[in-house]
Write a protein that binds this DNA or RNA. Structure first.
Lengths: 217, 217
DNA sequence: GTCTATAGGTGGATAGAC
DNA sequence: GTCTATCCACCTATAGAC
């Protein structure tokens, strides 16, 4: 069946790119996991690179639409925490989780390819995020008029970094502690809550002091 | 000369792994940039994987030693901000910068390989960071006794994520704004200052509320 | 220590039958 | 749409001369 093969390829690519990255995943491995023929990727997508773009588009576009929708729905006087919820929660909702609530592979693929950044994806990511990042930064500026715009710009990117790292490593982070007998809940709702609290505190922090170079020694 | 070739290989690998990742970088490209012979990597390091470990060890070990040293040097009543400075500043100091002050490639390689995580590096990273992460988390618990240990554990990892993402993308983040005519300083001291302020605010944020699932809609 | 040459394998992509 | 067979460029690693 045609449509099912295409979806199976997207699913398999999503898992493998998330686990291993783009460059380290071969077409043979990928088509085998999808129970498809070795030639199926080129038939359906044209190339490995175009497959990767589709893998990302399938997840990012709905998330960014939802982010924009929620940002627009906010009242003018909404606090920073609500702006950050509009940015972060869409990532974790809407199927972002396994049945046990843990973070799903498709979140990890975004995190991983976002950092691996193969050359052909650079422009793709820039397109997907540029406009949105500016809108959120402007909105945060309304919430925190005491902070310079460049500081808010950095802070939004710090939030993105925390998010990407968490999506990729949530299981690992939890398992280190669990090996010591500490139970660390890592369902999507818990992680989202932790991240939103952290991001709000970080974004609203007082303006940075200039560093004292002597104290660095 | 023997020693120089070895160093040239480490330098070239550092740059290329930082830009492209481990899997996407070939030995040919790497030895060519180092002006060395194609066989030099195997002679000096044994394999591509062992070269990557050396690339990381050269940077991470001094940084983590300095982190531990500064943590030990802190007075008992040191505030969270000082604990986070002990964690973050060693990354940016001691040659972490270009002559113009921007973030050096060798920071980026740590960020990138940290997220690419080829299988043979998983255990290496775990060894390098496990003990240190626990020591910093315990220390932060003293600064913020109102927060549960799991929350602090998550928050330290959010900080790591923000750090890794920033190391890899500082130039990119700045250049997006600069294309619009906004000057964004991205020298190492500025970035470190921004990150420390953000991290302090995030780590000390109030405990997360349980999320209201309805408000997510 | 450095080089050339090459082994031995895998990569992405395609041609053409069905 | 799916398959087999195959091309050929590229990969890591090594053998052996210098």
């Amino acid at each position: 069946m045609s449509t099912d093969t295409k979806t199976a390829l997207l699913d398999a690519a999503e898992e493998l790119f998330a686990e291993q990255g783009f460059a380290a995943t071969s077409m043979r491995e990928l088509t085998q996991r999808a129970a498809a023929n070795i030639a199926a990727v080129n038939y359906h997508f044209g190339s490995k690179a175009d497959l990767a773009k589709e893998v990302l588009r399938r997840r990012i576009e709905p998330i960014n639409r939802e982010r924009a929708r929620r940002l627009d729905a906010l009242p003018d006087e909404a606090p920073a925490r609500d702006v950050l919820r509009a940015f972060l929660e869409p990532v974790f909702s809407g199927g972002a989780c396994e049945s046990d609530g843990s973070v799903h592979g498709f979140c990890r693929v975004v995190g991983r390819l976002n950092v691996e950044q193969p050359p052909f994806l650079r422009e793709f990511f820039a397109e997907q995020f540029r406009g949105l990042a500016h809108r959120f930064t402007r909105r945060l500026a309304d919430c925190a008029p005491h902070l310079p715009p460049e500081t808010l710009w950095w802070r939004l990117h710090f939030v993105v970094g925390a998010l990407a790292h968490t999506l990729m490593n949530a299981h690992l982070i939890a398992s280190i502690r669990e090996a010591e007998g500490v139970v660390v809940p890592h369902d999507a709702a818990t992680i989202a809550g932790e991240l939103i609290a952290f991001a709000t505190g970080g974004v609203l922090a007082p303006e940075p002091h200039p560093l004292d170079p002597e104290a660095t020694k």
